[in-house]
């Protein structure tokens, strides 16, 4: 019913990486969403001092935060898919090694 295309090591690696990715990217998304100052350096703020007023600067920053938050969450979703795929592969590998 299902094809096996990953070895036991690769699927374990994918499993660990995706668990790590889900946890960290989701948390990063949350921190961007609540505008954590520590992550300010990561925002794509193009022109230095090119803002006419504090308000426009704040608007850019807010937009950047929201944008990064969604970005992180989507990447986390991609890792959820990876988790499912590599989990399935891992299960297949384990099962086949038991049956042999």
């Amino acid at each position: 019913m299902a094809c096996k295309f990953c070895g036991p090591k690769l699927s374990l690696c994918g499993l660990v990486l995706s668990v790590w990715g889900i946890i960290q990217l989701t948390l990063m998304g949350v921190f961007y969403y609540i505008r954590a100052v520590a992550l300010l350096e990561d925002l794509p703020l193009e022109s230095e001092g090119g803002h006419h007023s504090i308000e426009s600067f704040i608007a850019t920053v807010e937009a950047g935060y929201t944008q990064n938050a969604y970005n992180c969450w989507i990447a986390a979703l991609l890792y959820v898919i990876t988790l499912v795929v590599s989990g399935h592969q891992f299960w297949m590998n384990n099962r086949s090694s038991v049956s042999m």
């Binding site: 960290q24 794509p44 969604y70 970005n71 990447a75």
Partner: peptide
């Protein structure tokens, strides 16, 4: 990997 969500999310996926 940061930036507008969309293509960048895929980029972030790899970069991460």
């Amino acid at each position: 990997g940061m930036g507008y969500p969309g293509v960048n999310s895929l980029k972030l996926y790899v970069i991460f």
